[in-house]
Amino acid sequence: MIKILKEVFQLYIDRSDFFLEILLQHMAICGIAIVIASIIGILLGIIISEFKKTTSPVLSLVNFIYTIPSIALLGFFIPISGIGDKTAIIALAIYALLPMVRSTYTGIETIDPAVIESAKGMGSTDYQILYKIKLPLATTVILSGLRNMVVMTIALGGIASFIGAGGLGVAIYRGITTNNAALTVAGSLLIAVLALVVDLIIGTIEKFIKRKWKLN
Score class of each variant (00 low, 15 high):
115 V>A: 14
148 N>W: 02
3 K>D: 02
214 K>N: 10
122 M>A: 09
131 Y>C: 08
49 S>R: 06
104 T>N: 00
168 L>C: 06
186 A>R: 09
200 L>T: 11
103 S>P: 01
93 A>V: 14
190 L>D: 06
182 A>F: 06
3 K>N: 10
86 K>N: 14
65 I>E: 00
99 P>F: 00
213 W>G: 13
196 L>E: 14
90 I>K: 09
112 D>L: 10
192 A>G: 09
11 L>C: 08
131 Y>E: 08
8 V>Q: 07
76 F>T: 01
74 L>A: 04
87 T>R: 13
68 I>R: 09
6 K>Y: 14
28 A>P: 07
85 D>T: 10
204 T>R: 15
44 L>Q: 03
195 A>G: 07
56 S>D: 15
138 A>E: 05
60 S>W: 07
179 N>M: 15
111 I>D: 05
163 I>D: 07
70 S>H: 04
58 V>N: 00
114 A>H: 08
41 G>Y: 01
200 L>N: 05
122 M>Q: 00
61 L>Y: 10
200 L>F: 12
43 L>Q: 04
158 G>W: 10
195 A>H: 13
191 I>C: 15
187 G>H: 07
45 G>W: 00
179 N>A: 15
126 D>C: 05
178 T>L: 11
86 K>I: 14
130 L>F: 08
12 Y>W: 15
151 V>G: 06
162 F>H: 12
155 A>R: 11
190 L>V: 12
2 I>M: 01
5 L>G: 11
203 G>Q: 05
178 T>N: 09
138 A>G: 11
189 L>V: 15
172 I>C: 02
19 F>H: 05
107 G>Y: 00
163 I>W: 03
196 L>S: 14
120 K>E: 14
21 E>P: 00
115 V>R: 10
177 T>C: 04
198 V>F: 05
49 S>V: 02
143 L>F: 08
73 L>G: 01
148 N>G: 13
49 S>H: 06
144 S>A: 04
203 G>A: 08
51 F>W: 15
103 S>R: 01
158 G>E: 13
3 K>Y: 07
122 M>I: 10
